Simulated assay, not measured.
Amino acid sequence: MKEFIVALVAAAFGLAGTVVGAALSARAAKKGASLSAQAALQQVRDQGAVDQSHWLRQQRLQAYEGFLAAWDECLRLVDSVGLPGDYGSSGTNPLKEAAGRMTERARRIDILGPAEVALAAEELADSMRRDVDIATKLKQLTESMVPAATERITNETAPAMTAATEAMQETSRQMQELMAGANDSGRMLHEDPRVEALFESFAQAQELAEAAIDRANEDGDEMSAFLDQATVVVDELKRNQEARAGIRDRFTIAARRTLDSATPSA
Rank of each mutant, 00 (worst) to 15 (best):
residue 156 E to I: 08
residue 172 S to C: 08
residue 139 K to I: 13
residue 158 A to L: 11
residue 83 L to G: 15
residue 109 I to Q: 01
residue 144 S to Q: 03
residue 111 I to P: 02
residue 141 L to A: 12
residue 157 T to D: 08
residue 110 D to W: 07
residue 79 D to E: 14
residue 188 M to D: 14
residue 141 L to Y: 04
residue 162 T to H: 14
residue 122 E to Q: 09
residue 103 T to M: 07
residue 116 E to G: 07
residue 73 E to Y: 01
residue 90 S to N: 14
residue 128 M to C: 14
residue 95 L to W: 06
residue 94 P to D: 04
residue 164 A to G: 07
residue 95 L to D: 02
residue 176 Q to G: 11
residue 147 P to E: 01
residue 116 E to I: 12
residue 201 S to P: 01
residue 139 K to Y: 12
residue 169 Q to L: 13
residue 139 K to S: 10
residue 173 R to W: 03
residue 107 R to Y: 04
residue 78 V to E: 15
residue 190 H to I: 10
residue 110 D to C: 05
residue 114 P to D: 09
residue 147 P to W: 00
residue 141 L to H: 08
residue 165 T to W: 07
residue 86 D to I: 06
residue 112 L to N: 00
residue 168 M to A: 15
residue 201 S to G: 12
residue 139 K to C: 09
residue 192 D to V: 09
residue 194 R to A: 14
residue 183 N to H: 10
residue 188 M to K: 13
residue 105 R to L: 14
residue 144 S to A: 08
residue 180 A to G: 04
residue 91 G to V: 11
residue 119 L to P: 00
residue 72 D to L: 08
residue 95 L to C: 04
residue 83 L to A: 15
residue 75 L to R: 09
residue 98 A to K: 01
residue 148 A to I: 01
residue 128 M to Q: 10
residue 177 E to R: 04
residue 180 A to P: 05
residue 183 N to C: 10
residue 73 E to W: 02
residue 200 E to A: 08
residue 84 P to L: 09
residue 87 Y to S: 05
residue 83 L to D: 15
residue 197 A to H: 11
residue 193 P to L: 12
residue 185 S to L: 09
residue 209 A to G: 12
residue 179 M to H: 04
residue 159 P to V: 14
residue 89 S to D: 15
residue 121 A to L: 08
residue 183 N to G: 14
residue 105 R to S: 03
